[in-house]
Design a protein around this nucleic acid. Structure first.
Lengths: 331, 331
DNA sequence: GTGAAAGCGCTAACAC
DNA sequence: GTGTTAGCGCTTTCAC
């Protein structure tokens, strides 16, 4: 159907080896031949078939990024960081969505097994530490935005504990003593770490920790509202909330307003991620911003480095975060 | 490094052909041999190398979906529709982002040239009709969410003109006679079509069309605000706005509120896409909902159909839309 | 500086 | 029902 390297070789009157050398900018080819070959390539509209090349070289120069869902804008900047760094290093990033479903996630890993991609970067995962370690041992897998205890692979995240500590400390400094937290069920360590940061901040400031101040639901917007409803049933109602995601914070803000609370200095809310949403809603939402671009960039850099070495590195990389204050904390 | 089909054949004491047959569920293999081979496969932890298979079969069973950016949640449901239909038909969907940049888009098309993927589905495009037609002629390309005049390829969109007509008619029925429109610059026909629907609705109701009621900017949130500012400088100020995207509508809503306008029945705004955002902001935003899941599903179905036939179909598919009324129109 | 040829892992005739 | 073998398109070693 389309031209092959053989066609080019024949048309240019050289061997396929020479065409291949031209294709790969190999030095050992005379200027004249190179010109001739390049012209023939153009004439025939030839492009190399990477299936042949990849098979031969046992590499694809493609990294698969698996995100939970395309519905979360949070990943977009991370993906951009990945793409820029990957392009720089001669790789392409392809994306697929797992729908936070372990079966789908497993299916996508087939691309690793069957050599369709060189490596996988997981933006969150449902897999166990053992699975991840095995996978990274046999292939090359990196984890982003989430950590898994004792999993032996490169992990790139913010310091969730410290970030939560900062957020809650800010609320305390504003005079709040009754601070609720909206967290999530399940075993995402990002949430657990943020809970720890929440507890640490309270403890550090000599504030009693109340278990009924911690609501755990899904990441769904509505859970933010449910949390507020729950809190408002308590004897001692919280006057501030720290949520592990901006969506939850948005749900909390809207529900609080609906309940007649004066969201701002009187009833403060801080989210997590700095989604664009935070700027759009009224009141705008204070939040923790992660250096997303950097997370993506570093994840790719470390992944490609691991691809090149026989003894894989598997450390944890902590990326910067920043507290951003807006109207939901009265700023 | 990892086991090959040869290793399996040797270990099982059969030929590679037999292993291949088992791998592909070929009927012509005895139950006993199949069992033996499958056990050996498990023992060796073998998975077939798709680079070999794909090279041999000249197909990858992968479709590349190119989206402008992962920042727009609008595409998520379309992608889900694509993935479900693709899985059904034995294909995988991989996603990449073009950043609305023609160079990047062109780069991604390399995956088509070099046979890394079987087909490409573009969710919007910067390419010309000629480029698209050539591309689809030589390979297999489908266009979604946007149309390009005279481009010879399968195109799947809502009826933008009719949808806009519905939105504007709704505003007129609510008593508005001075209706502004927030559109976009550039040559996106979706916007042009929506402008036509806007004009048609006005004309149909005997309302004069004023060119200064049409603002054209980017798709950026802020442009929604700029539009409102612009409109408020006019002698006869609009009392309603139809925007070609929810982001623009959100920007318009917030700016209108800031200017002291009573957004709702007094000053109405309708957006486009039905982003989740519409439900979160206050007032919630009326909008046009597209049947996104269906758009994705049909796009994939038609693409795969075209992959199988020598004479490609290249028609346009119109998908349903629905007007959704919320607080921003006083509902 | 260039060519011949082997072989990456797989599938699919073809032969038996 | 199973095996032998050619060959998909490419890179790379080895000659020269």
């Amino acid at each position: 159907m389309s031209a092959t390297i053989k066609d080019v070789a024949k048309a240019a009157g050289v061997s396929v080896a020479t065409v291949s050398r031209v294709l790969n900018n190999n030095a050992n080819v005379s200027e004249g031949t190179a010109l001739l070959v390049n012209n023939t390539i153009k004439e025939l509209g030839y492009s190399p078939n990477f299936l042949g090349r990849n098979l031969r070289k046992c590499e694809t120069n493609v990294i698969l990024a698996i995100i939970p869902s395309a519905e979360h804008t949070f990943y977009s900047e991370i993906l951009r960081g990945m793409q820029v760094k990957a392009a720089e290093l001669g790789y392409d990033i392809l994306i697929s969505t797992s729908n936070s479903n372990e079966t789908t996630e497993q299916h996508l890993l087939n691309m690793l097994y069957n050599r369709t991609v060189d490596a996988v970067i997981l933006l969150g995962t449902r897999l166990s530490a053992e699975t991840l370690s095995d996978l990274n041992n046999k292939y090359c897998v990196t984890l982003c935005c989430e950590r898994v205890e004792n999993a032996d692979l490169v992990t790139v995240t913010v310091d969730d504990c410290a970030a939560a500590f900062d957020a809650v400390t800010c609320l305390i400094k504003k005079g709040h003593r009754n601070i609720g937290m909206i967290s999530t069920q399940g075993n995402a360590l990002s949430s657990k770490d943020r809970e720890k940061g929440y507890r640490d901040a309270l403890e550090y400031n000599g504030i009693e920790i109340r278990e009924d101040y911690i609501y755990r639901g899904s990441y769904d917007y509505r859970d933010g509202g449910y949390a507020v409803e729950q809190f408002m049933k308590l004897d001692k109602k919280p006057t501030a909330i720290f949520a592990v995601s901006d969506m939850l914070a948005a749900g909390a803000v809207n529900k609080a307003i609906k309940l007649g609370l004066n969201v701002g200095s009187e009833f403060s809310i801080i989210g997590f991620d700095n989604l664009f949403l935070c700027e759009i809603v009224r009141p705008s939402i204070s939040t923790i911003e992660q250096s997303c671009y950097l997370i993506g960039s570093i994840a790719v850099e470390k992944t490609i480095a691991n691809l090149a070495t026989p003894h894989k590195y598997s450390g944890r990389f902590i990326i910067d975060h920043k507290l951003i204050l807006r109207q939901s904390t009265g700023d």
